[in-house]
Amino acid sequence: MAMNGTITTWFKDKGFGFIKDENGDNRYFHVIKVANPDLIKKDAAVTFEPTTNNKGLSAYAVKVVPL
């Protein structure tokens, strides 16, 4: 089920960042999981599918909501 969130941290040079989800949890995401990576920036609103990996909470099918 899709969730909403906000990008809180973005490491462009490393290709990953973190999203604060609607429950207040931080989720890892990688640029290859983003549909529109050219719009990635700190504080951008996103929708995504929540999941977990071996390191904890993460996100896939991430879409940055255009302003």
Rank of each mutant, 00 (worst) to 15 (best):
M1H: 13
M1E: 10
A2H: 12
A2I: 14
M3N: 04
N4G: 09
N4D: 06
N4C: 13
G5I: 02
G5R: 00
G5N: 01
T6S: 06
T6V: 14
I7L: 02
I7Q: 00
I7A: 00
T8F: 07
T8K: 10
W10F: 11
W10H: 02
F11W: 08
F11K: 05
F11S: 04
K12I: 08
K12Q: 09
D13K: 11
K14I: 06
K14P: 06
K14M: 09
G15V: 03
F16N: 02
F16W: 11
F16L: 03
G17V: 02
G17M: 02
G17L: 02
G17S: 00
G17P: 00
F18C: 07
I19M: 04
K20N: 07
K20S: 07
D21N: 00
D21K: 00
D21P: 01
E22D: 07
G24V: 01
G24P: 01
G24R: 03
G24I: 01
G24Y: 03
G24A: 04
N26Q: 12
N26V: 14
R27Q: 01
R27H: 04
Y28S: 05
Y28G: 02
Y28P: 01
F29S: 00
F29G: 00
V31P: 02
V31L: 09
V31H: 08
V31Q: 09
I32H: 15
K33F: 15
V34L: 04
V34P: 04
A35Q: 14
A35F: 14
A35C: 15
N36V: 04
D38Q: 12
D38P: 07
D38Y: 09
L39T: 06
L39N: 08
I40F: 05
I40L: 13
I40W: 04
K41E: 10
K42S: 06
D43C: 15
D43H: 14
A44E: 05
A45C: 13
A45D: 08
A45M: 12
T47N: 07
T47K: 08
T47W: 07
F48H: 00
F48L: 03
E49M: 15
P50N: 02
T51M: 13
N53Y: 08
N53W: 08
N53F: 07
N53E: 07
N53P: 04
N54R: 14
N54L: 12
K55Q: 10
G56Y: 09
L57V: 03
L57R: 06
L57S: 04
L57K: 09
S58E: 10
S58C: 11
A59P: 01
A59G: 04
Y60C: 14
Y60Q: 15
A61R: 11
A61L: 10
A61Q: 10
A61N: 15
V62F: 02
V62D: 02
K63C: 11
V64L: 05
V64I: 11
P66T: 14
L67M: 13
